[in-house]
Amino acid sequence: MFEVLVYVYENYWQGAACPEFDRLGRKLIAAGFEAEEIQEALVWLDGLNIAAKGTQISLPDAPGALAGEPSDSGAVPARMQAQASNSLRIYSVAEQAHLGAQSLGFVCFLETSGVLPPHMREIVMDRAMAAPGDPVSLDDLKIIVLMVYWSFGEEPDALVLDELCDDTEGRLAH
């Protein structure tokens, strides 16, 4: 599945340039990917599109801004409230088991570096939980982070992109 995602990222850099899933599926078959791998990637991408489109951040002083606050019609808006600066994200036991310490540490690194805002972090966590692997490898998590940026039509900072794409096995710690 991750090879298909990398192919989509490289060939349709802007998420808006990506064709509809039926057409994309045909292009991926023509590119030589297995049908099962394509189907798994398309389901994953559909979940990413739903998550990215459903993410809306409201300001607390805006009408109906609080998540779960009923509007005049009585309907509850499906918006996220912006995370407070003193809030803390606790990872569930299932998230800890599925991602592993190395991947969770990388998510924390990106978040504390200021390059992964809370709303994008939540989509990364959602899509990581939907990804195969126990635990999800760090390389696969990096692809997930790239795809989340891709879904928002954003290019990561050059240093972040280097961190996401660079092979770290040859690095020496000092």
Rank of each mutant, 00 (worst) to 15 (best):
M1H: 08
E3T: 12
E3C: 11
Y7T: 02
Y7H: 14
Y7M: 04
Y9R: 13
Y9D: 10
Y9G: 05
Q14G: 11
A16I: 01
A17R: 14
C18K: 15
E20F: 04
E20A: 14
D22Q: 13
L24N: 05
L24S: 09
L24F: 06
G25V: 09
G25K: 07
G25D: 00
G25N: 06
R26D: 15
I29C: 12
A31P: 08
F33A: 11
E37W: 08
I38T: 14
Q39R: 10
Q39W: 03
E40L: 09
A41N: 02
A41R: 02
V43A: 12
V43L: 12
W44M: 10
L48D: 01
L48G: 00
N49P: 00
N49Y: 09
N49Q: 09
I50L: 04
A51Y: 01
Q56T: 14
Q56V: 14
P60T: 05
G64Q: 08
L66Q: 10
V76E: 06
V76N: 12
P77Y: 07
P77Q: 09
M80K: 05
Q81S: 15
Q81D: 09
Q83I: 08
Q83P: 01
Q83K: 11
Q83M: 15
S85F: 15
S87M: 06
R89C: 07
R89W: 11
I90R: 14
I90S: 09
V93M: 07
V93C: 04
A94W: 06
E95N: 04
Q96M: 15
Q96F: 11
A97M: 04
A97S: 06
G100Q: 10
A101F: 00
Q102H: 11
S103M: 08
S103C: 10
C108N: 10
C108W: 03
T112C: 09
G114T: 11
G114K: 13
V115K: 02
L116D: 03
L116T: 05
P117D: 07
H119G: 00
M120F: 01
M120Q: 03
M120N: 01
I123L: 08
D126G: 13
D126E: 09
R127C: 02
R127N: 03
R127E: 00
R127M: 05
R127L: 03
A128S: 15
G133S: 05
G133P: 02
P135Y: 03
V136M: 04
V136N: 05
S137H: 12
K142Q: 13
K142W: 02
I143E: 04
I144T: 03
V145F: 01
L146D: 01
V148K: 01
W150C: 03
S151P: 02
S151I: 00
F152N: 00
E154N: 05
E155F: 01
E155G: 04
P156Y: 06
L159E: 14
L161C: 06
D162A: 14
D162Y: 07
D162R: 11
E163I: 14
D166F: 06
D167T: 13
E169G: 04
G170K: 01
L172H: 03
A173L: 07
A173Q: 03
H174D: 12
